[in-house]
């Protein structure tokens, strides 16, 4: 079915936002619940925002040569960092996958302009581990909601599909003060179900929401 250009864009966005907000609330409630049970003061709740570029390293897709494979990639994570080895949290974001844009091309159905955009919203459970004073490693698993918008032949179609996947990230950070740190991050997203791979290079900012 075809949607109007405005409504089709709003629909998946709203659904996605609802999903993300619900999951963030669940993580916060869960974390606060464990927080109250803690007597130790060696824990902190860390909010990390990262922004940079996302590169679609394609394994099996036969995309045309003029397809754009890199774009903006952002992520937000909320991590509970206890005194022990592993920290646990949730990560989401908005990652560019690929875009094809062509004007006035000739197809067997006549001349048309084509625009196809794929973006991924990760919904991951992540585990982090500090391996050096300034270096942390993260591994995550969960789902990637692939949101695609295709405009061609005068019709715009927006679709989304959930695909299972894994991620691994290396984060280098420098402390700014007792509450914040700044760094850079390399992340590999393997959307295994779709057999797609995304590499992101981002600047990251870490902020301690709570420490106890």
């Amino acid at each position: 079915m075809a949607y109007s250009p405005i409504s089709h864009l709003l629909l998946p966005m709203n659904i996605m936002l609802n999903k993300i907000v619900t999951l963030i609330i669940i993580v916060i409630i869960f974390t606060v619940g464990t927080l109250q049970a803690q007597e130790s003061k060696k824990n902190q709740l860390l909010l990390t925002a990262a922004a940079g570029i996302s590169f679609n390293s394609i394994d099996n897709l036969r995309l045309p040569d003029d397809a754009r494979l890199s774009g903006f990639g952002s992520s937000v994570s909320l991590i509970w960092q206890p005194e022990y080895l592993l920290s646990v949290g949730f990560e989401t974001g908005w990652l560019f996958m690929n875009k094809i844009e062509r004007t006035n091309i000739t197809t067997q159905f006549g001349s048309t302009s084509i625009s196809s955009l794929w973006q991924a919203v990760p919904l991951l459970c992540i585990f982090g581990m500090k391996i050096h004073d300034n270096v942390s490693l993260y591994g995550g698993f969960g789902y990637y909601d692939i949101i695609a918008v295709n405009e061609s032949f005068g019709t715009t179609v927006a679709t989304s599909q959930m695909n299972a996947g894994l991620s691994g990230a290396l984060d280098y950070h420098l402390n700014l003060n007792s509450q914040s740190a700044f760094g850079a991050r390399f992340t590999l997203h393997n959307i295994t179900e779709l057999q797609q791979r995304l590499i992101t290079l981002q600047f990251s900012y870490h902020y301690s929401l709570l420490a106890w």
Binding site: T34, Q38, P82, Y84, L85, L86
Partner: peptide, 14 residues
């Protein structure tokens, strides 16, 4: 498999 304390006597395993 990694197991570590979670809180109190609880552990988590990944």
């Amino acid at each position: 498999i990694i197991e570590q304390p979670f809180f109190h006597n609880q552990r988590c395993a990944l």
